[in-house]
Structure formats: C-alpha cells, structure tokens
Amino acid sequence: MEDGSSFVRRWEDMDIDILVRIFQSFDIFELTSGIAQVCSAWRLAACDPLLWKTLDLSVLKSNFIKIPGNILTLIFHYDLYVRDDQLTYTAERCRQLKRLVMPAWNRIKKTGICMAIQMWEDLESLTMPSISNPPYLMEEIAKNCKNFAELKIMGPCDIIFACALVEYLPNLKVLSLRCSTIWNGCSNHYLGTLEEPRSAKYISLSPSRNPSTACTKKSAQGARRFNS
C-alpha cells in the first residue's frame, strides 16, 4: 500500500502544523540546516515563531550558555546577532546574570539593551562592541548595576567612550581594551581622572594598537596589575 502515487497524495494532507510539531525537537542547527532547503512549505514551517519562541543557545560552542535556568554567565557567539526581543527574553530568564559577553549587537536598539540592563541588577562584567553613543549605556549600568566592575570593549574606543566611562563608571576594577584601537589620549583621559587609581586592579591594553602606551602606563602606575 506504500506505493508512490498514494503517498504523494497523502503528503498534501501533511499540513504545516504537523511539520512544525515534528520540528519542535530540533535544535538551532537542525532548524537552520537542511530542512529549509526541502521546499518552500518546509522553509515556512522551519521559520514558524513557535519553534523560535525558546532560543536555546546551549548548542553553540560555549560551556556557559544554558537557558532557561539561573545562569550567571551568558556568552553569545560572535556571529550571533541577537534581536531586541530575544535579548529581552533572555534577560527575563537570567535575572541573576553576573557576566555578559555579547560581541555583536548591531540588531539591538537602545530600549532593548536598557531594558535588559534594568533586569540585571547583579551584572558585574560586560564584553561589548564599540557603540556610537555610549553614554546612555554607561549611565544605565551605573544606575542599575551596583557591583559592576569589569568592562571589555571590542572595537574602537574613542574620546566619547572614555568620557562616558569617566562620568558614569569611574570605579571599574578591570577595563580591557585588548581588542580595541584606542584613540590617542583616551586611556590617559580615563586613568588620569580616576580619583583613586588604585581601584583599577587590572587594565589590559596589550595587542591593541595603542599609540600612547607609554603615557598610559604612567597614568596607570597606581593599578596593581598592568598588562601591556
């Protein structure tokens, strides 16, 4: 009875809802690999919001990501461009987050990241890309995250960034600019204005193209460990 012709006829009864149900056990890689290439109906099913309601990043190559659960560290893959709604979803489920590594946030808007920061009162450490208008973010962190101590910036660190740090986060324990290009004078600007330079325990600048390492070093003499 399994002859080809009757089978094709039955395939037409296989509506999208059943396909979506079948795909429900698929992880992020299985959803994004072959099945969308089968035909347009399968692609539609694979894109169904029901399957993407839970963004399970645990399959990405990281030991840290586990959603849901009371996770403390969340590391996004550097190629993963999280959206606002996904970030909000994640933030709501990781209220105890202490460390966030999110190298790509081109698709995140101001409201999205601010809403997340407001939910992360325990946040201590952030790895972020360089953004064009950093003051609002630094202000939001200063307002909400009492224990915030570590910041790593990936991308150019300009004078606006440095000023924002000085204004809102003058007491960082660790500032890492290892993956940054620092504009001349920026690090001096930050370090020079620290009222209590000893509070910065570890400042890391090394592989960055930093034209003013020497003077930075001087400014950072108070730091207990200076890695360059």
């Binding site: 094709v8 395939w11 079948i22 429900q24 035909c39 399968w42």
Partner: peptide, 26 residues
Amino acid sequence: SQKIADSIKDLPHQDVREIFGVENDY
C-alpha cells in the same frame, strides 16, 4: 512526531524530499 523528527534529523534534504514525496518548488 518525535520519532519522525529523529528519523529525518540527519538526512540530507534530497533524501527528505524523496521520502516525503515533496516536490522541490525552488
């Protein structure tokens, strides 16, 4: 559904088309 999902998970999409009798409309 779970059993079907497990069976097609590791199949190339060409095989899935053949098994399900799906016409490639791309």
